[in-house]
Design a protein around this nucleic acid. Structure first.
Lengths: 138, 138
DNA sequence: CAGCATCCTGCAGGATACTG
DNA sequence: CAGTATCCTGCAGGATGCTG
């Protein structure tokens, strides 16, 4: 499991040795990480992955606690980055549907490992927290 | 590639069908995701993965743009969640070293897929952005 | 229904100064 | 050096109201 990670680190080090951190690429990677690190992006992505295609309202209802402002904002960003396809149906009342692009599905697949890890290590984390809190109460 | 993701989705759906979303587990998963989604956590984790063990100051210098307040805060959270081991050496001047636990390394391994994906799809994202911006300028 | 525009607020997080 | 404590500010993001 950690083998892949070690290998990855070696790869990164090698790459950086060859092309000593191109600030341009660096910035772009940070941008992508920031996108992933956004509070809502991965949740929206997960919901869309589960349901395939959803209207704005239905999508919002599936993301508990999000305001419609943040939903719009997140969706726009994701569309801009090519993660989401926005389709407007010219009918009344308006109907706009969102679905993941291949790029979005790819990011979902990449993030999949994190979801699984999270599900698998919940107890370990809970224990660590309890231990820390107990130790902090001195 | 998307096979794993699809499989994962099936697994999730099945699990939710069996144990219809235990709110307790749900909350914990969200907590983990929130941790990952934190602006600094994954960067700090990456730096620690590369260097193995670092003092507070050295670590901070390796994370461009982080304030020492946020560094302390992030480190405390990570320690609490069992991702990081904090070792105090009782000398003057004080010396405190941080290194990843097995849990931290595991999370790094899980997140590895996302890093790789990000590196591999930079151009696609750049293109998508350019296209979006061009279309937005009407 | 989808989603802008506007206003308003809390608090995340920076800067600074102080201690063991 | 490795923090904690205090203060201060910007802006993320919620609530509300209006349109095509």
């Amino acid at each position: 499991m950690s083998f892949d990670f070690v290998k990855h680190l070696e790869t990164r080090r090698k790459l950086e040795a060859e092309a000593p951190l191109d600030p341009r690429v660096e910035a772009l990677v940070n941008g992508v990480i920031a996108r992933v690190a956004d509070k809502w992006t991965m949740i929206v992505l997960d919901v869309l992955a589960e349901h395939g295609e959803l209207r704005f309202g239905a999508l919002g209802r599936r993301v508990p606690g999000i305001s419609q402002k943040m939903l719009t904002q997140t969706l726009r960003e994701m569309e801009r980055e090519g993660l989401v396809q926005r389709t407007v149906h010219p009918v009344v009342p308006p109907k706009v549907e969102y679905r993941l692009t291949d790029l979005g599905l790819g990011l979902g697949a990449a993030f999949c490992g994190v979801w699984i890890w999270a599900e698998q290590h919940l107890e370990a984390i809970e224990q660590a927290r309890a231990a820390f809190d107990a130790r902090a109460a001195d």
